[in-house]
C-alpha cells in the first residue's frame, strides 16, 4: 500500500464534522438556545438604553468620557464624529453597533480577565489555552458562522457570539502577559509579609497588570468593531448593514459611508479607552 497516496481522500474529517454538527443541532439545540439567553437580555437592555436616550445625551456622555480620559482634541474629535454620523443618517445603526460592541466586550472581559489571570499564574494552563486562542484568532469567521447560526439561529445574538470568539483572545493574552510582567521579587516580598495567594493577586499582581489589561480591553474593542460587517452577514443589525447591502446592490457610496462610520467610531473608542489605560 502506498502511504503517499494523496490522490484520494483518506481521512473523511469533513464528513465526521458534518455528522457531529448535525447531531449537536438535532439533540442539543434547546440547550444552546438557553445559553444565549443572558446575551440576549444584556443586548436588549443596551439597545433599549441607546434607543431611548436622546442623541444629545449619548453625545454628551462620550464627550465627557473623552474629556476626562483623553483630553481636548479627542473630545472635539468625538463631538464631530457623532455629529457627522447623525447627519449621515446612520444614528440608529450606530447605536445598534455600539450596543453590540459593548455587549460583546463586557462578556469578553468577564470571561477573559479571569482566564488571563489563570494563564498568567500557571504555565500549564497557559500551554493548554494557547492553541485555542490561536484557533479563535485565525480561523476564518465564515467557517464558524454557519454552525453558530444552526445552533443559535440567525440574528444579532449570533453575531455577538461570533464576535466574542474573535475578540476574546487579546484580553486573555494581555491579561496573562500583564500578570507575568509583575516582578517576581514583588510577589516574593508580598509573600514574605504574609500575603495569601488571593492577597498577592488582589494587592500586587492585578493592580500592576492593569495597564496591560486595559491594552487588552482596547484590542478587544477594536476587534469587536472589525467583526461588525461579518456579523451583519448573519442578520445582526447595525453599521454592518449598509456595508453588506451596498455590496450586494453595488451601491459603492452606501457601503463606503457605512465603512467610514465604523472607522470613526473605532477611533473614538480607541482613543478614549487608551486614555483610561494610561490613567
Amino acid at each position: 500500500m502506498n502511504i503517499f497516496n494523496f490522490d484520494e481522500q483518506q481521512i473523511p474529517l469533513d464528513e465526521w464534522i458534518q455528522t457531529f454538527v448535525d447531531w449537536l443541532v438535532a439533540n442539543y439545540r434547546d440547550i444552546f438556545q438557553i445559553i444565549k439567553a443572558p446575551i440576549e437580555w444584556s443586548l436588549n437592555g443596551l439597545e433599549w438604553l441607546f434607543a431611548t436616550l436622546p442623541p444629545w445625551v449619548v453625545i454628551l456622555l462620550f464627550a465627557v468620557a473623552a474629556w476626562r480620559f483623553a483630553g481636548k482634541r479627542v473630545t472635539l474629535f468625538t463631538l464631530l464624529t457623532f455629529l457627522l454620523i447623525g447627519y449621515l443618517g446612520l444614528w440608529e445603526d450606530t447605536m445598534t453597533t455600539l450596543s453590540m460592541v459593548i455587549c460583546s466586550v463586557v462578556f469578553c472581559a468577564v470571561a477573559g480577565i479571569p482566564l488571563g489571570i489563570m494563564a498568567g499564574r500557571s504555565d500549564r494552563f497557559e500551554m493548554i489555552l494557547r492553541p485555542f486562542l490561536d484557533a479563535m484568532q485565525t480561523t476564518p469567521a465564515f467557517v464558524y458562522l454557519v454552525p453558530v447560526v444552526m445552533l443559535f439561529s440567525i440574528g444579532t445574538v449570533s453575531g455577538i457570539l461570533a464576535t466574542i470568539v474573535f475578540a476574546l483572545p487579546p484580553i486573555i493574552r494581555l491579561t496573562s502577559l500583564g500578570i507575568r510582567q509583575v516582578h517576581p521579587e514583588l510577589v516574593e516580598a508580598a509573600l514574605a509579609f504574609g500575603a495569601t495567594n488571593w492577597q498577592v493577586l488582589r494587592k500586587v499582581q492585578f493592580p500592576l497588570a492593569m495597564p496591560s489589561i486595559m491594552a487588552g480591553l482596547n484590542q478587544t474593542i477594536m476587534m469587536a468593531l472589525s467583526m461588525v460587517v461579518i456579523a451583519a452577514l448573519i442578520g445582526a443589525g447595525g453599521l454592518g448593514n449598509p456595508v453588506v447591502q451596498g455590496l450586494n446592490t453595488l451601491e459603492i457610496g452606501m457601503a463606503t459611508v457605512g465603512g467610514l462610520a465604523i472607522v470613526l467610531l473605532a477611533m473614538v473608542l480607541d482613543r478614549i479607552t487608551q486614555g483610561i489605560g494610561k490613567k
Partner: peptide, 13 residues
C-alpha cells in the same frame, strides 16, 4: 518575621 530585600522590592503602585 519580616524581610528586607536587595532590590528593595517596594510596590511601585
Amino acid at each position: 518575621m519580616s524581610m528586607v530585600f536587595q532590590s528593595f522590592a517596594l510596590m511601585p503602585h
